[in-house]
Simulated assay, not measured.
Amino acid sequence: MPTPTKGPRLGGSPAHERLMLANLATALFQHGKIKTTETKAKRLRPLAEQLITKAKRGDLASRRRVLGVVRDKDVVYTLFDQIAPRFANRNGGYTRIVKTGPRKGDAAPMAIIELVEELTVAEPKANKKSAARKAAQQDKVEALAPAEETPAASADQDAEAPKSASGDTAEAREDSDEATENKA
C-alpha cells in the first residue's frame, strides 16, 4: 500500500484531491499543456505518466482503468489513439514541467506542465555487425542463384508461331491482312 503524502492535501480531503488530479489529467490530455501551480503540476506528473503507460498497452483492461480516472470518453479515445502511439518508443518521461513566474494575486509559484512532443518516430538502430551479416547473406543468395539467360530471346527462337482455331499461323494472317489492305 502506498504511503500517504505528509501534510495537508491539495484540496482538503483525499477524495477531493483525487478528483482535482483527475480533472487536471483530463485537461492535460485534452489540450496538450496546462498552466497550474508547481505543487499541483508535481503531483499530476506521476498520475499522467501512469495513464499514458496504460494507454500504450492498449487493451480493454487498460482502457477501463483509465476510464476510472478520466471520465471523459472523448479524452480517453484521444489518449489511446493519438497520444499513446506518439510515445511508443519512449519508456517514461512523457511530461515536462516548466516553471513560470509567480501568480499576480497571491504570488503562488506557477508552472506549465505539457506533454513532451515526439517530433520523429525513432526506429531501432541496427548495429554494424547485423548489417554486415545481412550483406553477406545477400551475397550468398546472389551467388547461389542460377545465371539466367535472356528468356525472351530463347523463347522467340524455339517457340512455334501461335495458330488460330482455323489452323492459320500468325504469318499467314499477316499476309492475308496485307492483301486485303492492298485491294482496298
Rank of each mutant, 00 (worst) to 15 (best):
A22N: 05
N23Y: 01
L24R: 14
T26H: 00
A27N: 13
A27E: 07
A27D: 11
L28M: 01
L28S: 01
F29N: 05
Q30Y: 09
H31S: 10
G32W: 06
K35C: 11
K35H: 08
T36M: 08
T37S: 14
T37Q: 07
E38T: 03
E38R: 06
E38A: 04
T39C: 11
A41K: 10
A41S: 08
A41R: 04
A41G: 01
R43T: 00
L44V: 12
R45N: 00
R45C: 02
P46H: 15
L47D: 07
L47I: 15
A48I: 04
E49K: 14
E49R: 15
I52R: 00
K54H: 09
R57V: 15
R57N: 13
R57F: 15
R57Y: 10
D59M: 14
D59Q: 03
L60R: 15
A61P: 07
S62R: 10
R63E: 03
R64M: 06
R65M: 09
L67N: 06
G68H: 07
G68D: 02
V69K: 03
V69H: 05
V69Q: 05
V70W: 01
V70D: 06
R71L: 06
R71H: 08
D72N: 14
K73I: 02
K73W: 00
D74T: 01
D74K: 05
V75F: 15
V75Y: 04
Y77H: 00
Y77F: 05
T78C: 10
D81V: 14
Q82R: 14
I83T: 11
I83C: 12
I83A: 03
P85D: 08
P85N: 06
P85H: 10
P85E: 15
R86N: 15
F87Y: 11
F87G: 03
F87E: 07
F87V: 13
A88W: 04
N89S: 07
N89F: 10
N91L: 14
G92R: 06
G93Q: 13
G93L: 12
G93S: 15
R96Q: 12
R96M: 09
R96W: 05
I97Y: 09
I97P: 03
I97R: 08
V98T: 14
G101A: 05
G101H: 06
P102Q: 08
R103P: 13
K104T: 12
